[in-house]
C-alpha cells in the first residue's frame, strides 16, 4: 500500500472514530486535555510513521495501541491517583446509586482488566479488536473481561444492599 493511501486510511479512522478515541484516552488519563493531546499526537505520529506500519493486524488496532501507550504515559506523568475516579467531564452529571463505587472499583482493577473494560465499553471494540490492541489472545480477553465483570457486578451488589 502506498504511503498516501495509508495516510488516507489514517484520516478515515480518525474522522470516523475520533470521539471514541478521545473517550477511551480520557478514561485512561483521567484528564480531558491529556486525553486530547494523546489522540492528536498519536494520530500525528501515525501519519509520520505511516510507511513503517507492516500490515500485521489492522491499521486501526495499531493506532489504538499507539493512543493507549501515549495515554498511559501521560497518566504516569500526571501521577494522578486513580482512587478519585475523576474521568468524567460533565458537571451536570446525575449521580446514580453505585456510580461512585463503580469508579473506585474500575480504578482498582488490575491494569489489563481495566484497559479491557475501557476498550470494550469506551472504544466499542469487539474481543478480536481488544486482543489486537492488547496483543493477547482472544481467549485471554474473554477471561479478562469475565474477571472484570465479576468484580464490577460485585460492586453493584454491595451498592444496592
Amino acid at each position: 500500500m502506498r504511503s498516501r493511501d495509508r495516510q488516507a486510511d489514517i484520516e478515515r479512522v480518525y474522522r470516523e472514530r475520533f470521539m471514541r478515541f478521545e473517550r477511551f484516552a480520557r478514561a485512561v488519563t483521567m484528564d480531558h486535555e491529556s486525553a486530547l493531546d494523546a489522540v492528536q499526537d498519536r494520530f500525528a505520529d501515525a501519519l509520520r510513521a505511516a510507511g513503517s506500519f507492516e500490515g500485521r493486524g489492522s491499521l486501526e488496532a495499531w493506532i489504538w495501541r499507539c493512543v493507549l501507550n501515549r495515554a498511559r504515559k501521560a497518566r504516569l506523568i500526571a501521577r494522578q491517583l486513580p482512587s478519585d475516579g475523576t474521568y468524567e467531564t460533565r458537571d451536570d452529571r446525575e449521580e446514580h446509586c453505585g456510580d461512585e463505587a463503580l469508579r473506585a472499583c474500575v480504578a482498582a482493577l488490575p491494569e489489563r482488566q481495566r484497559l479491557a473494560v475501557f476498550l470494550r465499553y469506551y472504544a466499542d471494540l469487539d474481543y478480536q479488536g481488544i486482543a489486537d490492541v492488547l496483543e493477547v489472545k482472544v481467549g485471554t480477553v474473554s477471561a479478562t473481561l469475565a474477571h472484570a465483570h465479576a468484580a464490577l457486578r460485585e460492586t453493584f451488589v454491595e451498592a444496592l444492599r
Partner: peptide, 18 residues
C-alpha cells in the same frame, strides 16, 4: 447496569469536534 454506569461516569463527548 455496569454498562450504563460506565457510560455515565465517562460519557461520549459529542461536543468535541474532530
Amino acid at each position: 447496569r455496569v454498562a450504563a454506569a460506565l457510560d455515565r461516569v465517562n460519557p461520549l463527548d459529542t461536543r468535541l469536534p474532530a
